[in-house]
Design a binder for these strands. Structure first.
Lengths: 195, 195, 195, 195
DNA sequence: AATGAATGAGCATTCATTCAT
DNA sequence: GATGAATGAATGCTCATTCAT
């Protein structure tokens, strides 16, 4: 056995995930986390230095995984097709299966933590890949993009679509279907409008 | 005599708008609102009965205006055109000019108040007008909509687009342009996809 | 006209009398006193230095009058008769007509002020006159009083009887009748028991 | 392990009893209770939900015991004798031994709580038993009672006598003796006067 | 003489965190 | 390893008092 009991730690983490997901970092209560974990308040502090590090330890793996995933080439290759969309969705689904709760917390419940800008980071990243992919095409066709904020808007809108799906569904098949539709809706759309 | 009364109230309101906008209702601090307004804690309570009514008094006019606006016929008429989009954008712009900060608070920072479900209300309303408008058209064309959640997703995505624009811009002309683009992007898109 | 407007001062005093009588010194609210006097908060402080001196100024005359009255010889003459009781009641009634509210405040609502021990003072004084009057008689008859606290108890009981009457009735004739009955009840009683 | 828990609770209760007894419910300060108990403010709230429940938890047992005691038959049997007085005194003494401080708080320091009318309740109850017991006797003797308020006055006076004894003495033998004297004084007296 | 806006210390209560057991 | 008792700073709010007008 290790220095800390794995099972206790897991119960704390599970309880914290729910609490952070329900109330957000700032309004989450250590007492409630302890209670729902069936653990004493003090004992949490044997496993985690404080509320902030409890949050970090729970959220960091999801954050890292997300950052890695975002850098996968199939999110930024310069053209896309149905099969590429499916690569994309496959990749996303793998992350979601492991980290759905954490990602929702990252998106909306991380105010007051060092992760509070994660959603914005992702949006900015998606925006930049959108630009890389679409601008050359548009320039090649002589289209002048009047407002580059449209890329940001599209990116942000896209991400919110994701989170809307995440919040509603657990069924992977369903999620996969809807994400696919969302991509086609938005990026089918943007290609047509700009090209 | 009124002796600065109006000006103090305005300073409190301005400070509260910022505080609620930054931290949300629950995490906003009356002490901080007072401090940033350059006013003593106790003095706030001359103007507002308590934290909850301070929030209400600031947010309610925006909420009412929003609800009225939403019921305007040009948001739900059964077909749309560029000129109708412009009606829509005109209406929205009038609300935004007055209530931008308040609407952003309504959208994301009103947890713990009676307004906490406003964004969801609006999304559901938009969803239902979308269905009313598109379903007959689609049925008329023999298109079978496989998943009605797409209406919700589109509605939610649309609203988030709005709020993204709001957060970024203050210039009305700019906002008008972007909202117009957003509508064309999403609803141009959806018509094509479903029809 | 004097330095301060008499009428305003009177309105404040009347309002304060009611407030102190209802809630006692500590729980009385300067705001409420001002409101019920139809006067601004700040203005009270032109007439009275602070809450404590407002109380003092209202209560002091009654206190002084009470102390004077208590020293009147007919309260302590060494024997008593129906006519002496009537002297007593006459004296008391004169004080009550002027100072009923104040006396009730002195009795029960002066916690936190320098008058908080007034009731006790009076009880002790009555106790001592009781002793002066009865002890010689009792000794003369060879009666041994086992517990001098009985004098205190009788005195205290007597005073509470007074205040019970005061609280209930405003009609002087009624009060006079009841006070007379109370005296006969208690002091008729004590004479018989001890003699 | 319970680790001082019981002892801390007792210290809080003791301190609260003193504080409520000194200042009354409304003016009692949780800070002061904590300080005098040698406990931090927050810790009180581990043991008692709030000020109101701290008061209730301390006072309720005394209140219940008092109400039970009051309904004992020997307080209302239609005639009385020395032995019955001793039953009465025995009963009262048992309550007093346990709940002296609480009864004094109930009597004078419970404004702002659900117990604020307890003394009045008791007085009214005693008044009604007095009437039940004396009126038939008086009617039987052809005595006309001119003013029924005398029953209330006697009852109130009697109760105040009780509380006067309570405030002064802790010695049970002493209290027993004085209560006995008080009853004989007042009810010896009343019988003679009315009969 | 009067107003009522403004102040700030005080209140009851909560909660992340520490620590004796 | 674990408990939960204890701490104290922070919160929303009130109120006697002061002061600019």
């Amino acid at each position: 056995m290790q220095y800390r009991k794995k099972e206790t730690k897991n119960r704390i983490i599970a309880s914290a995930l729910t609490e952070f997901g329900d109330k957000g970092y700032l309004d989450a209560s250590m007492r409630d986390i302890a209670q729902n974990a069936g653990v004493s308040v003090g004992n949490i502090y044997r496993y985690f230095k404080n509320k902030s590090e409890l949050f970090d330890e729970i959220i960091e793996p999801a954050y890292c995984r997300l950052m890695l995933e975002m850098r996968e080439p199939h999110y930024s290759r310069p053209n896309y097709s149905i099969s590429q969309i499916d690569d994309h969705v496959d990749g996303v689904m793998k992350v979601l299966k492991q980290y759905k709760k954490q990602l929702l917390i990252l998106a909306d419940k991380s105010k007051g933590t060092k992760y509070e800008r994660t959603k914005e980071e992702v949006v900015l990243y998606v925006e930049s890949t959108l630009k890389d992919r679409l601008l050359p095409v548009l320039n090649g066709k002589g289209v002048k993009v009047h407002d580059q904020f449209m890329f940001y808007l599209l990116s942000s809108t896209f991400m919110e679509g994701y989170f809307t799906i995440l919040r509603r569904y657990d069924n992977p098949a369903k999620m996969r279907y809807l994400i696919r539709e969302l991509i086609i809706l938005l990026f089918g759309a943007i290609d047509e409008r700009f090209t």
